[in-house]
Write a protein that binds this DNA or RNA. Structure first.
Lengths: 258, 258
DNA sequence: CGCTACGTTGATAGGGCTCAAGTAGCGTGG
DNA sequence: CCACGCTACTTGAGCCCTATCAACGTAGCG
């Protein structure tokens, strides 16, 4: 529906905020890094490009594992399902992110990956990737970095869920969203959430009502602004303030064990 | 979790419980698998063996990443610290488990790994491992399986924290502990927790008081039995019953989103 | 024997879940 | 054009679970 086409590195921004310049440069750098990685992958292994629309599956739980996937454009959710009926969104994937690592261990996926938006995903044969990686260490290194990032991210999620109250968890989520967009060269001040409140809640370990209340409160406090129409479009004009809000929520706890 | 696979045609077992036989055989098999993996590692790359005592660090956050580590014996905890003072146990590592993946992405650890017990850990140069892996695909495959398992496990932790009430979370923890011991050839009916209530709570996203209460309740309900002396030694006589207790706690929720 | 760390148990309060009602956006068909 | 139904979202009321605070019991150890 609203695909945000890759935003060109425009210089003509009116906003005269000097502190933001360094951040923008950083974002540009990581945007280039992601583009370079995608190129590297394309050069080294055959990729099968696939256009997906909202709701399309990239892969499904309990199906045999043969490929890994890399997001070129669009946004994807990874949904973990345990046999007893529990179901939870455990990851969101943007441009440059890999999907499907969960299937390596026992050759069978244990998550669904679903497009939240129109986008393009690349399929890469795992066997082919291993062979290419043996020839080209840089490719293997990139694969390992991606898995390592995923492990680190999952742990950060766990900490957030365990230590942050609902409002801060939502604020943290929006912060991370903005950061992910920024580091891919997209603007962060105007954002379209492509998830329902229920999905956000699933990702954060909250009910949809709690998410809704949290967002209303953040709006009342001026930390976020809702666009005129629809409650999924919002403006994040001051991401550092959001981050500060999260930090303040942690401070009183600051529990040191042992 | 405990799927009762078609019972192998063994006849010479004295125990008249056929379902348990399959489980035991399964455990033996995975115990052998772990031993084989350790041998494989030893053959393929130079490992530096190190004896650690309770409280010793295997590696520390913010130190440069150079090695991965494999547990030979003992038990280890992985503690994630974020700069704002939050601190949480994000993993427990037994024989055959790898540690240190978090450091690959940016060449710097972001967790502590600490021995909870006397044990032996192997240090493996990451560079050396990559080179050996390029020569020997089976080794690389094992590394990837280990990382994949870690990702899947972290996600399971997240689901447990988000969907289970305190008692069930503790029961699930004990279940997993018993399973981990069993699959390493150790007895599960007599178990020594090597963690304080605070540490268990940190791992499960609970306070130490909640852990204590949960364990007392599980004891009253006969799902676990405390040994005579000390509250860290306990008997898990009926692990399937514990698993069933967890399952029952989920059932009413059984929330399907979307 | 007293110190310290660990564990248990109770009372209380609060945050988030549940249940419920009402609103807004949107496509469909009259 | 509006009625209609559907889904998503918001907001309120009440309750339950767990965190918090506090007191006490227990094990290990100098």
């Amino acid at each position: 529906m609203f695909q945000t086409t890759a935003c060109a590195p425009l210089s003509s921004h009116l906003s005269p905020v000097p502190a933001a310049v360094a951040v923008v440069d950083e974002d540009k750098a990581s945007s280039r890094r992601i583009a370079a990685t995608l190129e590297q992958i394309q050069r080294a292994v055959p990729v099968q490009r696939r256009i997906v629309r909202q709701g399309d599956f990239v892969y499904q739980a309990s199906k045999p594992f043969t490929h890994l996937y890399v997001v070129n454009t669009g946004l994807f959710k990874v949904v973990n399902l345990s046999r007893d009926g529990r179901e939870q969104i455990v990851g969101l994937k943007y441009r440059g992110d890999w999907m499907g690592f969960d299937g390596i261990a026992d050759q069978c996926h244990d998550c669904d990956a679903v497009a939240l938006d129109t986008g393009e995903v690349w399929s890469i044969s795992y066997e082919g990737l291993l062979q290419a990686g043996a020839r080209e260490p840089a490719l293997m290194a990139e694969l390992h970095r991606a898995m390592s990032r995923e492990i680190a991210h999952d742990r950060d999620s766990l900490i957030s869920v365990c230590t942050l109250p609902a409002d801060a968890r939502v604020a943290d989520f929006l912060c991370n969203w903005a950061t992910a967009l920024a580091s891919r060269g997209l603007r962060t001040d105007q954002v379209t959430l492509r998830m329902t409140r229920a999905e956000i809640g699933s990702y954060l370990g909250l009910t949809l009502e709690s998410v809704s209340r949290a967002m209303s409160r953040l709006g009342r406090d001026g930390l976020i602004q809702f666009a005129d129409k629809g409650r999924r479009e919002l403006h994040l004009r001051d991401v550092p303030a959001l981050a500060e809000f999260v930090r303040l929520a942690v401070e009183p706890a600051a529990r040191t064990l042992q």
